[in-house]
Simulated assay, not measured.
Amino acid sequence: MLTIPIKRAHIEVTHHLTKAEVDALIAAPNPRTSRGRRDRTFLLFLARTGARVSEATGVNANDLQLERSHPQVLLRGKGRRDRVIPIPQDLARALTALLAEHGIANHEPRPIFIGARQERLTRFGATHIVRRAAAQAVTIKPALAHKPISPHIFRHSLAMKLLQSGVDLLTIQAWLGHAQVATTHRYAAADVE
């Protein structure tokens, strides 16, 4: 048994989007409708925080600190690994507007992303939002038709953006909430390729 070689698994290349492709997805929802504003804010949240779908849909108003000079959000990650992520000003403005539109105060433990039944957005609902935006954005960025678009690709895209901006792997690991730096290292391998 000791002479049997270990089977090597094929590791997929980490797919990510360019800044222009991410921007096209974020701009796709109609800002004149309530659903479009919610969708745009949700896509912006995924793109700017790198949150997992479960983390993004699990955010409540009291997890946000938007009044500070450096806005931030508390994300509840896998394995009870909570982390605080900075929020850029464009996302802070969009979240503030969304909370005001839904009449949610900053200190309330209510979900900020709600579905059609006025309940917390589900994983299926989040995937539907991303796919609907991709179907609209493909007219502007045809290359999106050949990429695997899912909520998780925003996470990969942010990680690649941080890496290409010179952010070290340990910081990216903390930002994304990875338990091991080896998980984060695949972005460095993808960047080399």
Rank of each mutant, 00 (worst) to 15 (best):
L2P: 01
L2R: 09
I4W: 10
P5I: 03
P5R: 12
I6R: 15
H16A: 14
H16P: 01
H16T: 14
K19F: 07
A20Y: 02
E21I: 10
V22T: 15
L25Y: 03
I26E: 13
A27E: 13
A27P: 11
A28P: 05
P29H: 10
N30Y: 09
N30I: 10
R37A: 06
R37F: 03
R40L: 02
F42H: 12
L44A: 12
L46T: 06
A47G: 15
R48M: 08
R52I: 03
V53R: 11
V53Q: 06
S54K: 09
G58D: 08
N60E: 06
N60F: 02
N60Y: 02
A61K: 00
A61W: 00
N62W: 00
N62P: 00
L64I: 10
L66Y: 13
E67S: 15
E67W: 08
R68P: 00
P71L: 12
L74A: 07
L75R: 06
R76V: 04
R76G: 09
G77P: 09
G79E: 11
G79W: 08
R80W: 09
R80Y: 10
R81C: 07
R81K: 15
R81N: 11
D82K: 12
D82V: 01
R83V: 01
V84K: 10
V84T: 14
I85M: 12
I87H: 08
P88K: 13
Q89P: 00
T96A: 08
A97W: 05
A97V: 05
A97S: 12
L98I: 08
L98C: 07
L98E: 13
L99K: 03
E101D: 14
E101Y: 03
G103L: 13
I104L: 00
A105T: 00
N106L: 11
E108A: 04
P109N: 15
R110Q: 01
I112N: 00
I112H: 00
I112C: 01
F113Q: 09
I114Y: 07
A116I: 11
A116D: 04
A116M: 03
E119N: 13
E119A: 13
L121W: 11
T122W: 05
T122A: 06
F124Y: 12
F124V: 15
F124Q: 15
A126M: 05
T127C: 05
T127Q: 15
I129G: 05
R131N: 14
R132G: 05
R132A: 13
A133F: 04
A133L: 05
A134G: 04
A135C: 03
A135R: 14
A135E: 14
A137N: 08
V138H: 01
I140N: 09
H146M: 07
K147Y: 06
P148R: 13
S150W: 03
S150M: 02
I153C: 13
F154V: 06
R155F: 02
H156A: 07
S157K: 06
L158C: 10
L158A: 04
K161L: 12
L162Y: 04
S165F: 03
S165R: 13
D168G: 04
D168W: 04
T171M: 11
W175V: 12
G177E: 09
G177N: 11
H178Q: 05
A179I: 01
Q180I: 00
Q180P: 00
A182G: 14
T183K: 09
Y187I: 03
A188F: 01
A188E: 07
A189V: 11
A190M: 06
D191T: 04
D191F: 01
E193A: 15
